[in-house]
C-alpha cells in the first residue's frame, strides 16, 4: 500500500470550509436531504398529498435520476469531442475546488506511489510514477464544468485512459471503470466514457507536474463529464461490471453526469 500523508489537520478555517464545501455538502443534521427545502419551500401546498414526504419523494427522484443515467448514456456520442481552446483561454490561476480546503489536500509520496490496477484486466501489476510518465502523452485545453454551475478552461497533459486500458488488457466489454483516491474519495464511470479519446490520465497541469491541489500525482480528466467525476490523487483503477457509485453519487448527485 502506498503511504499517504494528510496535510496538517488542525488550523482549518471553518469559513474556508464552509465556502468551499457548504454548497455541495448536505446538512449533516438532516439525513433526508430533500425534506427541509421541499416542505418549507414553494411546494408546501403539496405536503398534504405526501408528494414531498421525505423518503417517498427521495426514492422517486432517485429512480428518475437512474432513468436520467440511461438517457444520458444514450445521448453520449463516443466520437463527439469536447471543444478545445487556445492557450490564451486557460484560466490562471485555475480555481481550486474540493470538499476539503486547499491545505487539507492529500499529500501523496512520489517515491512510494504505486497505481493499483484491479478487476477485469489481464495484468494487475501496479505502476510506479516513472512507469506512468513513460507512457505516450497528449495535451488538451478544455473546459471543466462544475456541478455548481461555474466553469474554467484548463490545460491538462497525460495519457489517454483508453491507451492505458489497452496496455493492462482491460475487458472493455465491462460496464464500469472505478477510481479510488488517496483521501477516500471514489467515483466510477461508464466504459464508453473511459474509452473516449479525451478521457485522460493526467500528470501535468498547465505544463507543470500536477500540483498537490490539482491532484498529484495523477488525476483522471474527462471533459465529457462534470468536474466531480474527474477524480484527483487516483490510487487505484478497477474495471468492473459492478455498480460502485461514488462519494458524491452515493449522496444523491446524478451518477452519469455527462456534459
Amino acid at each position: 500500500m502506498p503511504r499517504v500523508r494528510r496535510g496538517p489537520p488542525p488550523g482549518v478555517d471553518p469559513e474556508l470550509l464552509a465556502k468551499d464545501a457548504a454548497k455541495l455538502m448536505p446538512d449533516p443534521t438532516r439525513r433526508l436531504f430533500l425534506r427541509g427545502g421541499a416542505s418549507l419551500g414553494a411546494l408546501a401546498f403539496l405536503t398534504g398529498c405526501d408528494i414531498v414526504d421525505g423518503t417517498s419523494a427521495e426514492q422517486a427522484l432517485i429512480k428518475i435520476s437512474h432513468f436520467n443515467d440511461r438517457a444520458q448514456a444514450w445521448l453520449f456520442n463516443p466520437n463527439k469531442l469536447a471543444p478545445t481552446y487556445p492557450e490564451s483561454a486557460v484560466q490562471r490561476p485555475f480555481p481550486f475546488n474540493a470538499y476539503y480546503p486547499e491545505d487539507e489536500a492529500p499529500e501523496v509520496d512520489r517515491e512510494d506511489y504505486k497505481l493499483e490496477v484491479g478487476g477485469m484486466v489481464d495484468n494487475t501489476k501496479s505502476w510506479t510514477l516513472d512507469e506512468l510518465y513513460a507512457l505516450p502523452q497528449e495535451t488538451q485545453i478544455t473546459r471543466l464544468v462544475c456541478v455548481e454551475g461555474w466553469s474554467a478552461i484548463g490545460k491538462w497533459t497525460g495519457t489517454p485512459l483508453r491507451e492505458f486500458l489497452r496496455r493492462i488488457g482491460a475487458d472493455t466489454r465491462a460496464k464500469y471503470v472505478w477510481f479510488r483516491c488517496a483521501e477516500g474519495y471514489s467515483t466510477s464511470i461508464d466504459m464508453p466514457t473511459a474509452l473516449h479519446p479525451q478521457t485522460q490520465m493526467t500528470f501535468k497541469f498547465d505544463g507543470e507536474i500536477l500540483p498537490r491541489k490539482y491532484g498529484f500525482p495523477m488525476k483522471v480528466r474527462m471533459p465529457t463529464k462534470l468536474g466531480f467525476k474527474n477524480p484527483k490523487h487516483v490510487m487505484e483503477i478497477a474495471v468492473t461490471d459492478k455498480y460502485l457509485g461514488g462519494y458524491w453519487e452515493d449522496q444523491g448527485y446524478n451518477w452519469f453526469s455527462g456534459l
Binding site: K23, L24, M25, P26, D27, R30, F33, L34, R35, G36, G37, A38, L40, G41, A42, L43, A60, L61, I62, I64, S65, N68, V147, E148, W248, Q251, G252, Y253, N254
Partner: peptide
C-alpha cells in the same frame, strides 16, 4: 432558502432534472 426546493444542490438537481421531462 424558503423559496427554494431541494434542500441542497444535489436535491435541487434531482428535482430540476425530473421536472425537466
Amino acid at each position: 432558502r424558503w423559496v427554494t426546493l431541494g434542500g441542497w444542490l444535489a436535491g435541487a438537481l434531482l428535482w430540476h432534472f425530473a421536472a425537466m421531462w
